[in-house]
């Protein structure tokens, strides 16, 4: 029992909630960039929240079902169609064996999550079914999907069509997107005025932004405090002695274009980081299209932890709404 990929879209991958625990040896978290949307999609079709699903970026695939199933599409507003007939997003619907799922043009957001009852039953690698394409690890053969791929499905429970995540429980970035950050241990490397400017500027998502890192441009280049490079650091003022890169950290190579490291990021290197996007706002980054405006807002650790609690409560409310 499976699905067959007719056309793959731009970059469709199998993802779940990721592969934490190996970042210290260079294997990134991977998993859905918008976790809330992925969990919602699974709950809509009656799957465990961590079941493997499809992450679809900007352009939808065409998929043929080789058995009956319940399907839900969440995250980006990428309207699904069954045999050419449109279906709602954030709502579960039934498909029959032989049906073809396709998509209309993207209306809003960047990544849609396609959950299928039973989940996608690719092998578990290091505790996860997520695809890490750079490392050719996990997912379907460690790569993005291609035409002709046949993906096995797990055993499905009861049909759960017609269930919806209430609109109040769907989270998406505003315009400009407000990304809350904690400034970090290298903040002192830039001047006070430059730090204020960084937080005041409106940046734009660069077209290169992907699962590894979200690059932004359009703000003023950073001014560094002059120094003698410490032993082991490169000569560029943005260089540091190699250090760990946390998930969500914001590096600014040569002080020009901030890059927020995301689910498929490298785990260390020699660029200074101004800080890190708080965990509660990482989902929002996954929904940013190229050229969209974004701002960074500094918050305290206490505010970051409150935001993390708010996000946990939101997941609880989604669970209750779909129980």
């Amino acid at each position: 029992m499976s699905i067959r990929i007719i056309t793959p879209g731009l970059s469709t991958t199998v993802q779940d909630l990721g592969r934490p625990g190996y970042y210290h040896i260079g294997i990134p978290l991977s998993g859905a960039m918008d976790m809330l949307a992925a969990q919602s999609a699974n709950l809509l079709v009656g799957n465990p929240e961590g079941a493997a699903l499809l992450e679809v970026v900007f352009m939808g695939p065409e998929v043929e079902f080789q058995r009956d199933a319940t399907v839900a599409v969440t995250g980006a507003e990428l309207p699904p169609k069954i045999n050419g007939e449109e279906r709602p997003t954030w709502t579960s619907f039934a498909v029959k064996k032989g049906d073809v799922l396709s998509f209309a043009f993207l209306k809003k957001g960047a990544r849609a999550y396609v959950a299928i009852s039973g989940g996608i039953d690719v092998p578990v690698v290091l505790g996860s079914r997520s695809t890490y394409t750079l490392g050719a690890l996990g997912g379907f053969e460690g790569r993005k999907l291609a035409a002709g791929d046949v993906l096995p499905l797990g055993e499905a429970g009861n049909i759960r069509e017609g269930r919806t995540v209430p609109e109040a429980l769907r989270r998406s970035p505003g315009s400009p997107a407000e990304l809350r950050i904690l400034t970090g241990i290298y903040w002192h490397r830039i001047t006070e005025a430059s730090g204020r400017q960084f937080l005041a500027d409106t940046w734009k998502v660069a077209p290169e932004a992907d699962r590894i890192g979200y690059r932004f441009r359009g703000g003023k280049p950073l001014d560094f405090v002059t120094r003698e490079p410490p032993f082991g650091a490169g000569s560029d003022p943005s260089n540091i002695v190699d250090a760990c890169y946390p998930y969500g950290s914001i590096q600014v190579p040569s002080g020009t274009e901030p890059i927020v490291l995301h689910r498929d990021a490298v785990s260390g290197g020699g660029y200074f980081m101004v800080g890190a996007v708080i965990s509660a706002d990482m989902d929002l980054i996954g929904q940013l299209q190229p050229h969209m405006p974004a701002r960074f807002e500094a918050v305290t650790m206490e505010q970051a932890l409150l935001a993390r609690n708010d996000r946990s409560r939101l997941i609880d409310r989604i669970r209750q709404a779909l129980a």
Binding site: L10, F58, M59, P290, H291
Partner: peptide, 9 residues
């Protein structure tokens, strides 16, 4: 003719 993707044309 429509753009299938967001990005730079």
């Amino acid at each position: 003719l429509l753009s299938p993707l967001p990005g730079t044309f």
